[in-house]
């Protein structure tokens, strides 16, 4: 049992270890200046030191807060609108062209306008996360809901459920596997977008730390927020996996 788990862990991290090993070797061999590319070991150590610094933790916390609120809003809107569009032909028809036109827009281009409207603080960044993360959730919900086996709905309707009750007691839970996939994509998007927004204009957050370090040519400190956001993504992904295992227990996955 333990042998198998260990083997799977090693296999899982093999590519990562190889990459880090090569990177470390290149740096150790003096092939690049540490001012251009610091060694991964140095970045890890620096991150560990920073994690003990309350100032760094506040920056990290701001980023996490924005991701969490942004994703929660994107989920509420995406699932709500996706369900409505899939169950109501009129709503679906009205929304389809809107989604087609809005989805491909690079939302980061809206960011200057969002700052003007919502200010430099949380609101503009959360709005940007929502604008970017809502589409994968909405589309996954819509298509998941459209694909629900009609016999599940018929079984519920025969048992006395109204169409509206079916939306919440049958279509929504039946679409969960698809919604969950949309959420995982939205999670990654949120990590990327919040970082970008904080780089463009912010007085806090991981993205802001990177810009601040870049302005004073502290290369090592530039890589620390990158590592931090990467690990943050990893942790959120792990949380999502745990939640998924619970939420999707009955589905054959």
């Amino acid at each position: 049992m333990i042998g198998r788990a260990l083997k799977s862990l090693i296999l899982h991290s093999a590519s990562l270890i190889l990459l880090l090993g090569a990177w470390e070797a290149v740096c150790r061999a003096g092939m690049v200046s540490p001012h251009l590319l610091p060694a991964p070991s140095a970045i890890f150590l620096r991150l560990l030191v920073q994690l003990a610094d309350p100032a760094f933790l506040i920056h990290l916390g701001q980023t996490v807060l924005r991701i969490a609120v942004g994703l929660a809003l994107a989920t509420a809107i995406g699932v709500g609108v996706g369900l409505a569009a899939s169950r109501n032909r009129l709503i679906g028809r009205l929304l389809e062209p809107l989604v087609r036109v809005l989805a491909p827009i690079p939302k980061i281009a809206l960011y200057p306008a969002l700052i003007l409207m919502l200010g430099f603080d949380h609101a503009s960044k959360i709005a940007l996360i929502v604008a970017d993360a809502v589409f994968p959730i909405l589309l996954a919900t819509y298509h998941g809901a459209r694909m629900v086996e009609p016999k599940l709905i018929w079984s519920a309707r025969a048992a006395g459920a109204s169409e509206r009750q079916c939306t919440f007691t049958i279509v929504l839970p039946a679409a969960l596997p698809s919604i969950y996939t949309g959420l995982r994509i939205a999670l990654l998007i949120a990590c990327v977008v919040v970082f970008l927004a904080e780089m463009i204009s912010s007085s806090d957050g991981l993205g802001h730390l990177l810009i601040r370090a870049a302005r004073s040519f502290r290369t090592l400190d530039m890589f620390v927020p990158l590592l931090a956001v990467s690990l943050l993504g990893l942790a959120l992904n792990g949380l999502a996996t745990l939640a998924g295992r619970r939420l999707l227990r009955g589905f054959a996955l």
């Binding site: 016999k151 079984s155 309707r157 048992a159 006395g160 039946a174 999707l248």
Partner: peptide, 21 residues
């Protein structure tokens, strides 16, 4: 007029709710 609890279906594919026990 539409489905009703006076007529209960049983399908070849079972059509159970997979998220429910």
């Amino acid at each position: 007029a539409g489905p009703g609890p006076d007529r209960g279906p049983v399908f070849q594919e079972f059509a159970l709710f997979p998220w429910k026990t």
